[in-house]
Design a binder for these strands. Structure first.
Lengths: 329, 329
DNA sequence: TGCGAAAAATGAAACGTTTCATATAGAAGG
DNA sequence: CCTTCTATATGAAACGTTTCATTTTTCGCA
């Protein structure tokens, strides 16, 4: 018989140490036992190289020390940096992270939430693109950037404040006619407040503001068309543009330069997120910086229930301005 | 008694459907049963909204449909794009991904491997920075970019070929005196072959080549010092630089421009990886592109054993050149 | 020295599956 | 109508833990 060597169980340890199963369990879980027993069990554990079986433990105790984290993908640096930060927080608390990419697909997202629940995770952190997402009562759920109401907590940056700040910064730098650009129309999404904040900021400052918001799946060329419409005699009608994300800002900058316009000399551009292209290097465009670490740690605290949520709650974390060379200062 | 409503089990389904436990198990696992039985069980499943408990299943069957993926972090876009691609492959095969960040820390990495094993994953995919990593025989393990020998399969890009290609491209673009730059000294790392390929390429082409390889934890300023040493009368001694990663290339480009040098007019720079800063946008420096998708799918195939490994194997995937504006073509 | 109370160790039951030896029903053949 | 064979359904045991009702040990005190 060529038995494949199976890993030792608590029973094996108990036998080796000459104690009962319950005693081994106590030692493994750090519950106090007699000194002599403790020593014997530890020795047996070392000798057999025993490791607890998380699946047996999870089955019996209904606690898996696993959190599901869901974002559209890991390609967009905002998402990957967020997930990185969440993972750090979880690891520090001895939790494990099950990762799911939703690909911006509401159906898939719904399926993944069910999958995660069935996977018996202790909680779910999700940056959702599904306004109608159904979540089971049983599993703690924390949303990022989308407020569902009910008793589902949501963590997000102060998007409204960020919008206002963008308006103020452009104004400070001398802009007198600005535009706002946004892809998609997920209306209940918190980031949509960036527009509201920006518009209100412009109004307060007395600066005219044009909005260009495309549908969900329109190509980037729509923005190019828009810009060309407002381009006469080698001059752009706007002297400042606020883009809803850094990602979009980079695309817009590309279009502007292909039109022969200089950034920031001819037109200033400001994005949102605070992406550092290669991780810890400098910003590649001026931007409103999201507090990624703070978002991550709030999510983790909330989902682990360190911080109990009673009422429907929307946590708004402070943003800041970052100069990246696409504004004048 | 305020019982918290517990989820239905197979037993509940069996009772509801009036069949035995075994029959429910068969239906759930797609094993053929009598037509009438199948119908009744399905109805009961729907009615009770039954979901299988993965922990019970995993405990009994010793198969968890979970793969651990380990890279240093998700900040470096090469890593996050790789993990994204691996996750896609796994999801397509109905596997789940447990993610661990090793933070370039060999000790931590070793601990995480043990943790993953104890977590009963069906396999581990790891981009390791620990040349002495110990892996249990029990769990399928696939390495990325580090060849351990033994019977541990390794997947990597053709780093040697990539180095040669970098030399050829610089030569094609008129370079006659080049430098190679690399941080760290993880000598058994496959990417170290980039240097060998580059050196051999330069030799074959008859171009002088200077190497600058720093220690593991030296600051970036070491490269600045090096460049200044080779900078006389407003002219840099080199007309081409190959950086071991795009990440480094960007830092070097920053230094060069702070020295008043133009890229690519005064000096051409080529990186390695093929990072697209914002995911799907254009390259921000000329580079040797790693086949990230191919690496990901090979890893997944191997770790799932779709493709059986017998001998120690090192899979080398083809690279390509990508123009990003920091070379002349 | 002996008694009772408190503290500690024990081991059986349970968690929700899979699996396998057994039981059953139905079909086919004589 | 009975036997045999096949195909299918059954349910008990097992996976490796935790937990809790019991039993055993320890120890202070009379």
């Amino acid at each position: 018989m060529n038995q494949t060597k199976t890993s030792p169980t608590m029973k094996d340890v108990a036998q080796e140490a000459g104690v009962s199963l319950g005693t081994v369990s106590k030692v493994v879980n750090g519950i106090s036992v007699g000194e002599e027993y403790y020593r014997r069990v530890q020795a047996a554990i070392e000798k057999l190289d025993y490791r607890i079986n998380s699946y047996a433990k999870g089955l019996k105790s209904n606690k898996t020390f696993t959190i599901a984290v869901m974002v559209p993908n890991l390609i967009n640096p905002f998402f990957s940096q967020l997930v990185d930060a969440i993972n750090r927080e979880l690891a520090a608390k001895n939790y494990r992270m099950l990762f799911y990419a939703t690909d911006y697909d509401p159906k898939l997202e719904q399926r993944l939430v069910q999958l995660a629940e069935q996977q018996k995770v202790d909680g779910i952190i999700c940056l959702s693109y599904n306004p109608e997402l159904k979540v089971s009562e049983g599993v703690p759920f924390v949303s990022i950037d989308r407020y569902f109401g009910g008793n589902i907590p949501c963590v997000s940056a102060d998007n409204y404040g960020g919008g206002r700040l963008a308006a103020e910064k452009l104004a400070e730098n001398g802009c007198r006619n600005v535009a706002f650009m946004r892809v998609g129309s997920h209306l209940t999404n918190e980031p949509n407040k960036r527009k509201d904040g920006f518009v209100s900021g412009c109004e307060a400052l007395g600066i005219p503001c044009t909005l260009k918001i495309t549908g969900d799946d329109t190509p980037i060329s729509v923005f190019e068309d828009f810009l060309r419409e407002h381009f006469r005699d080698g001059k752009l009608e706007f002297d400042g543009i606020f883009c809803v994300t850094d990602y979009l800002a980079h695309q817009i900058i590309g279009i502007l330069s292909s039109m022969g316009l200089q950034v920031p000399e001819d037109v200033q551009v400001i994005g949102f997120d605070g992406i550092r292209a290669f991780g810890d290097q400098e910003l590649t465009c001026s931007t409103i910086i999201q507090p990624i670490e703070a978002i991550a740690s709030s999510c983790v605290e909330m989902v682990l229930g360190t911080q109990l949520i009673k009422a429907p709650s929307l946590l708004c974390l402070p943003i800041s301005y970052g100069f990246g060379g696409t504004t004048k200062a």
